[in-house]
Simulated scan of single mutants.
Amino acid sequence: MDADFIDDDLMQRNLLLRLLDPATRAALAPHLQRVPLVVRERLYEVREPPQWAYFPLSGVVSMVAEMPDSPTSVVEVATVGHEGMIGLPIFLGADLTPGFAFAQVPGEALRLPAGALREATAEPGRLSRVLHRYTQAMLSQVYQATACNRVHTVHERCARWFLQTHDRVGADEFELAAPFVAQMLGEPVAVVRVVTAMLQQAGFIRYDGDRLTVTDRRGLEGASCGCYRIVADEYERMAASA
């Protein structure tokens, strides 16, 4: 899409870009492209050089680790929405990505060529500071998810995952297929159906296996483990201190 469409208001729909000063956003704008996030479409592949950094405007992206002894088995390590960026390996100077990323919920993103991001962060500046703080928040999310997957029940983890998706989508109703939820949680589909039925019976959600509606946000937070609030607080600190 033509760079003329990348105006400042559009850029500010992404939190990281909103945290930049107007001059830095203006310098990035000519290099940005507005692209759709299509469900299941991969944004980068395992152990390949990333070509683009993506700043989501809407939708949700899953960052996933692939098991080397079973390529069909994957584990979600983090999710990214309008609060973040996909492409931290570029900023950190890595040549390859450790996992892959794909759209979990459809939306839109602004993408920036890898070379443009490297050039923009070659010297200390506002963008580098914001991305350093974002790296800290992302590490917090990955650490917490690792501990959560080991310690907490599937009921708590499912509620946490729905809350994080709800935050990023910005709507009470969104598409979410049960087999996909099962894959991201690392649980059988039958287990996910039992857990979502319990959450629905409690009045927290409505779910038909394809579309989920959050009907009681406070109740869903009560069903989740404390990991949800820990990660949410870290992103709030990022926004306040970047």
Rank of each mutant, 00 (worst) to 15 (best):
P71Q: 07
P71S: 05
T72G: 02
T72I: 10
T72F: 05
S73L: 12
S73V: 14
S73K: 06
V74R: 13
V74A: 08
V74N: 09
V74S: 12
V74Q: 12
V75C: 02
V75N: 01
V75W: 05
V75E: 10
V75Q: 13
V75G: 01
E76H: 01
E76R: 12
E76F: 00
V77A: 08
V77P: 03
V77D: 00
V77F: 02
A78C: 04
A78I: 03
A78P: 01
T79S: 13
T79P: 00
T79V: 15
V80C: 14
V80M: 14
V80I: 15
V80E: 03
G81L: 09
G81C: 09
H82N: 07
H82Q: 06
E83M: 13
E83D: 14
E83A: 13
M85C: 11
M85T: 09
M85P: 00
I86N: 07
I86A: 13
I86Y: 05
G87R: 06
L88E: 04
L88W: 06
L88H: 07
P89F: 10
P89M: 11
P89K: 12
I90T: 12
F91A: 08
F91H: 11
F91V: 06
F91T: 06
L92C: 13
G93I: 06
G93E: 11
G93C: 06
G93H: 04
G93W: 02
G93Y: 03
A94K: 12
A94I: 00
D95T: 01
D95V: 02
D95F: 01
L96K: 09
T97V: 14
T97L: 06
T97N: 08
P98R: 13
P98T: 04
P98K: 12
G99A: 05
F100C: 10
F100V: 04
F100Y: 15
F100R: 08
F100W: 12
A101I: 01
A101T: 06
F102H: 14
F102W: 05
F102G: 00
A103C: 11
A103N: 04
A103P: 05
V105L: 12
V105Q: 09
P106A: 15
P106V: 13
G107F: 09
E108L: 14
E108S: 10
E108V: 01
E108M: 15
A109S: 14
L110Q: 11
L110Y: 10
L110T: 05
L110N: 10
P113V: 07
A114K: 02
A114M: 05
G115F: 11
G115Q: 09
A116G: 02
R118S: 00
R118W: 03
R118Y: 02
E119M: 06
E119W: 00
A120F: 12
A120K: 02
A120C: 08
A120W: 02
T121L: 07
T121G: 07
T121E: 10
A122H: 09
A122L: 03
E123S: 13
E123R: 14
E123Q: 14
P124Y: 10
P124C: 05
P124K: 04
G125C: 07
R126T: 11
R126L: 07
R126P: 03
L127N: 11
L127D: 07
R129N: 12
V130Y: 07
V130G: 08
L131W: 12
L131E: 09
L131Q: 09
L131K: 08
L131N: 10
H132A: 15
H132P: 00
